[in-house]
């Protein structure tokens, strides 16, 4: 028998597109990057950590955010790139905390080795932010047992919207699937806990979808996710 959401509300699958907006700010040196990080809006940090996953890209990249990637590829400081790559926004209450950690990591590295101060890139770092446009889809489901198949059909925009954007958008800072499962009461607590343990930071969107499918199927973790798209 199909388990129903107490409010009988089906889960309506949405997808999204990011409309990218330039901030007009760019950096060629670590000092310029540091200065810019202090002033750019939070949405800009969100884009360079999360929104980047919806950009034209194939497969995995080595670093988990644009700052780390630029420092590695353009300024060639792998030590700082590695430290910045480990900055996990999920460990901060807000993006202000992320901002402080980035600045702290940069300061720490400049204290260690001031030669980085002189490095200048041919390819500047361009700070952008994004507006998210949310679209309905014709997909909806009502029962928990439909979850694996339904989530398998999520496109990357749906994964981004329901899993990543939801954590910024909702008061409980949880993904939309968990919020919806809460409507079934305590019967879904275990599944919600399992979903809550999935760290979206270390998965590409396609991998994240696999992780969620595996969790809702009840067969533990899915792929051995390594890095975001």
């Amino acid at each position: 028998m199909t388990e129903r959401n107490s409010g009988d509300a089906p889960f309506e699958v949405r997808t999204c597109e990011l409309v990218t907006i330039s901030t007009g700010i760019h950096a060629r040196t670590i000092g310029e990057l540091r200065q810019a990080v202090t002033i750019v809006p939070e949405g800009c940090l969100h884009y360079h950590f999360w929104g980047r996953r919806l950009r034209p890209q194939i497969g995995e990249t080595e670093y988990f955010n644009d700052f780390a990637e630029w420092i590695a590829r353009s300024l060639r400081d792998i030590t700082l790139a590695e430290r910045l790559s480990a900055v996990n926004p999920e460990e901060h209450e807000s993006l202000e905390g992320v901002r402080r950690e980035i600045l702290g990591r940069i300061d720490e590295r400049m204290d260690e080795d001031d030669s980085l101060t002189w490095a200048k890139s041919d390819h500047p770092f361009f700070f952008v932010r994004a507006q998210i446009l949310v679209f309905p889809t014709d997909k909806r489901f009502s029962g928990v047992e439909e979850l694996p198949e339904a989530v398998s059909s999520f496109d990357r925009g749906s994964v981004f919207y329901h899993i990543i954007d939801a954590r910024r958008r909702t008061r409980a800072k949880e993904d939309d699937i968990s919020s919806w499962l809460a409507g079934f009461g305590s019967r879904t607590d275990s599944l919600r806990r399992k979903l809550g343990r999935i760290d979206p930071f270390i998965f590409a969107l396609d991998q994240l979808r696999e992780e969620i499918v595996a969790a809702v199927r009840g067969d533990g973790t899915g792929s051995e996710g390594r890095s975001p798209e």
Binding site: I132, L133, V134, D165, R169
Partner: peptide, 19 residues
């Protein structure tokens, strides 16, 4: 993208917009 810009611009300064 260009239609999205028009819709976004019509909606004003907002981070999120439902179409």
């Amino acid at each position: 993208n260009e239609l999205s810009v028009m819709v976004a611009l019509g909606a004003g300064e907002t981070d999120s917009l439902e179409v």
